[in-house]
Write a protein that binds this DNA or RNA. Structure first.
Lengths: 231, 231
DNA sequence: CGAAATATTGAATCAACTCAATCAGCGTGG
DNA sequence: CCACGCTGATTGAGTTGATTCAATATTTCG
């Protein structure tokens, strides 16, 4: 019995659609590992040695300048695929935001396996195309939106992505949720400073648009107002 | 004889690697068309009805806000693939910057053909992964770089991508080139205003870093200085 | 040539940043 | 248990880089 049989993302990750012999083969190549909050898994510009599926937890993808400025260029949730297949180096670092569990493959093994399994490559292609769409929408935010618009867009995005996507029917966006980000990390997602993020949060709170019961918790009181602010 | 036999991007586009019967089949599905400078080919949020290979010319991929702000999220050169396969809607508009020639497929036809030809899907996957890398690098620019850094990075990027990639050996980055962008379009790539772009260009000229013989022409006089400025 | 579009330059404003101080939450150890 | 220190977040004051608004210059094209 392979560990995949009990994998909680078995039917959502790129493994979905593989038949039992294929899963068995893939299973022998992969191994599970945990990554503690704050711990890196992949380094920017390093040789691309491994790829992985996220089983549990949240990780950030970042790029940095020589002088230490950071931009979060992506966020990986359970069932997401991380790492750079079919390429020599990884363009982004991957660091866990929360304690996480991932299913890791050597890139070489994965590349070989993928080339032999078109269905898997197709899943990966669909995922990559979606991620590119999402990334391009974020470029609009970074290049053209004001700080209030950025914050509103961010909160709505979080509300969608942190929606309780368990097995319940039509969950819809979450009204209240816990951010996997510190204020600094929110700033690194939005291309702002921590002070600006803090001020915008305070503004939204005093305007009664959101409630902030704790540092990481958000409750959306007026979604319509947020959508209006998002621009 | 199919038009592909004489196609100048035959060996660089995703068609590369297909054998003759496959090319013949693909060829019957595609048709060539020209797109004049300024003419749109695909509209944001519209149903994704067509995909295409760029044969000649340059096109921009853009997203816009309701109130008309625009962000250029990608630029397509000859041999690049444009459009959104395997998805209902297109996340970006595609508009020609110069007169262009493209090889157009109905998305449905292309999707079906691609699913039957893993080698083609693999090529598309590699391209999409590279484009995602490039896009993420651009997010760093949009979120964290200053106007002078943005302009310097932009000019170096143009110098690389507009390098004479004919058949000559090891061309290297272009020392002088013609921008396919107006000042407004440069602003839309970098998330700046046209005035800021103009001021930065003037600054680089008066500092002797570049020469600007005409509105669209750039000659890099001091590449080292540009690299330093790029941050 | 003249008109229209595009680009540059200048002056003034403002949004977001920097720098600095205070505050809140939290775990530790006396 | 609570004082202490540490980290992260908030708030304030002042600055600045990029914008906006406005005027002028240049190029393009009918």
């Amino acid at each position: 019995m392979s560990p995949c049989d009990t994998c909680v993302v078995r039917n959502r990750a790129i493994c979905a659609g593989l038949d039992n012999p294929e899963i068995a083969a893939l299973s022998t190549m992969g191994r599970r590992r945990t990554v503690s909050a704050g711990e890196p898994l992949i380094w920017e510009d390093d040789d691309s040695l491994l790829v992985a599926n996220v089983i549990e937890g949240v990780l950030k993808l970042t790029t940095s300048t020589a002088d230490g400025r950071e931009q979060i260029v992506g966020v990986a949730y359970p069932s997401d695929f991380i790492g750079r297949p079919f390429g020599q180096t990884s363009a982004a670092s991957v660091v866990a935001l929360t304690d996480a569990r991932v299913c890791v493959f050597s890139r070489n093994d994965f590349d070989r396996f993928a080339r032999e399994h078109p269905e898997l490559e197709h899943k990966l292609l669909e995922r990559t195309l979606s991620e590119l769409d999402r990334t391009r929408a974020w470029m609009m935010l970074l290049g053209r939106k004001s700080a209030p618009e950025k914050i509103a867009t961010f909160l709505l995005d979080m509300s969608d992505r942190l929606a309780d996507n368990g097995c319940g029917p039509h969950a819809g966006p979450a009204r209240q949720f816990t951010l996997p980000f510190s204020r600094q990390q929110v700033a690194d997602v939005l291309g702002l400073t921590i002070e600006t993020v803090s001020r915008q949060f305070t503004k939204l709170k005093s305007d009664g648009v959101v409630a902030l019961p704790s540092r990481r918790d958000v409750e959306i009181l007026d979604r319509g107002a947020l959508q209006l602010l998002a621009g």
